[in-house]
Every structure is written in C-alpha cells, then in structure tokens.
Amino acid sequence: MWDNWLNKLADLRDPLRPPGAVEEDEFLQKCIRCRKCEEVCPFESIKSAHGEWGLKMGSPIIHPRDTPCYLCEDFPCIESCPTEALEPIKSKNDVKMGIAVIDKTLCFAYNDILCRACFERCPIHREAITMKDELYPVVDENKCVGCGICEYVCPTEQPAITIISSHKVGG
C-alpha cells in the first residue's frame, strides 16, 4: 500500500522502538504520538521521530548510539502507553526490540585488539553475548533483546556492533 511507499521514502534505517512495541505496521496505527513514553523514560532514551522519518514523525524512536534502552525493571514506557502500541512484558528477557549484529571487519576483538566492552555491559549478561575462546564476542540471536547498550559502549569510531531493528515496515 502507498503508506508503506510514503514511509519508505524516508527510510534511512528501521527505527528501534521502545520495549513491547507491536509489529511496525500495527505500531504506526496504534501509536498516537502522545509522547508519554518519552516523558516517563528515566534515561531520556526515547525520542520522537522528526520529519526525516516521513509519516513516522512523532513516533517514539531509540537511537542506541546516543542513549540505549536500559531495560527498566517496571517498564514505565509500556505503563504509560494509552493505546497498547507498547504491550506489557513480563521480564527484560522477553523484550525483542532488535538483534545486535557484529561487523567483524570493524570489531577490535576480531582484529586482534583485546576488547570486551559489549560483553561486559550486556544486560542479558553472559547469555546474549558470549566470548568465544574468551576472545571473540558472539551474539545469540535468540537471547539478544536489542536494547542497544552494546552499540552504545562499542569503542570503535563507527560502532562495530549495531542493532538491526525488529521493526520493519510490512512485518
């Protein structure tokens, strides 16, 4: 449909949504852009999309390189959502915002520079990111929640570990 087409005009990267977000198509219809999740976020991780996002403008977006999601115990963002665009979540392990992907050409560890930044800071500790041979970080796609803390802490200039959002238009 042409709402997708209009959205794609501005698609730079699939947006990372707050925890509990329903599928992207449904999310864009349910989210009324009220900014409540933004306002209650204690880390100011949630920001609103602007014009460059086309018709997604006003919807909540997380830019992990600026401020990732710290996966609050009680998820105030979900609590604040009036339309169930963000659905309740039992524990942080059930969040599925996206999946971290490592670019081995950029990653220090894979280029023989000792680095464990993402492994150390991953909130799904020792599960979502493990160290192969105690040297190389490996992401478990099933365990990773996509909070973006790894992308935030990655010391390379262009982050070697980035989150691929699970919020793609049309699925």
Binding site: R33, C34, K36, S80
Partner: peptide, 26 residues
C-alpha cells in the same frame, strides 16, 4: 511524572485521558 503527556493523551496521576478523535482513529 505525576502529570504527563500531550493533548493527544494526558495522564494526571492514575487518570488517563485520550482525545476521542484519536480513539476513534485507533
């Protein structure tokens, strides 16, 4: 965060208010 939101949707304490036009849209 006792009062939060916009005129799309506003929360005052436990009271949640949503613009009826947006509820209709949803």
């Amino acid at each position: 965060h006792g009062v939060n939101g916009t005129f799309y949707s506003l929360s005052i304490g436990e009271l949640n208010i949503v613009d009826p036009a947006l509820a209709l849209q949803t």
